[in-house]
Amino acid sequence: MTLLAIENLSKRFSSGGREVVAVSDVSLTLGPGETLGLVGASGSGKSTLARILMRLLPADGGAIRFEGKDWLSLSGANLRHRRARMQMVFQDVLGAFNPRATVASVLNDPLRIHNIVPKAGRATEIAMLLDRVGLPANYAERSIREVSGGQRQRIAIARAIATKPSLIVLDEAVSALDVSIRGKILELLVELQEERGISYLFVSHDLAVLRAVSHRIAVMDAGRLVETGPMRQVIENPQSPAARALVHAVPRLLTEPTEGPSHDV
């Protein structure tokens, strides 16, 4: 059974009389508990695809079925209600939070809107969510501006899992983070997936990141899907020029890491 099926999705932007094809005839499927890595160079349309999927942008054509139902025809209260099942983590750890918010209010919003737990139990639930993403419960009182980037991304993940979704779209979710924190966030995501069976659509330009978490990889180039396949197959034997270029852009995938102090200058 597929959780998500995207069929022939397309999207054009027109700016100043010029038409730009952002997404052209893209079809994808995603199974439960699976991670699909969506990779492509800048401007390949992968973030646009993610935003259409999140219903942040309207599609020009095509269909999306999510949990067996037509996802693009939902609107108003129905859409808001069903959004609980599909969540998103943004790239910009600063911009993804209202600067006036506290950690508690960020996590309280989804719990309140979807009535996940009754009001009396929300403080406990917030503490549990924080604990699940590896933050102490007393962080709830802090302003969102008082926590670091990596911690903010943990809070973003806690917000995404608060509504118990079946799919989380991760739009460059670790690209803005320090390399040392990146690995820990990826570990957390994999743990959550094993624990709750959440599917991920992991959008990134970095194949090294996708290699660590993806089951399958889809490669986009100039709005088109040029290659899909199991992770190992795409990375070890890329078929399309775009995929090859992306693999070549990650030198450590091809060359063995060299030993010795000359490496860390």
Binding site: R83, Q87, M88, D109, I113, H114
Partner: peptide
């Protein structure tokens, strides 16, 4: 157009609440 307004939409916040709680104070 900020991401935090997008994330408020993603968690299913009502447009009126987005206008008065997310946008107006900022």
């Amino acid at each position: 157009e900020r991401d935090y307004v997008a994330s408020a939409r993603v968690i299913g916040m009502h447009p009126a609440e987005i206008a008065f709680r997310e946008i107006l104070p900022n």
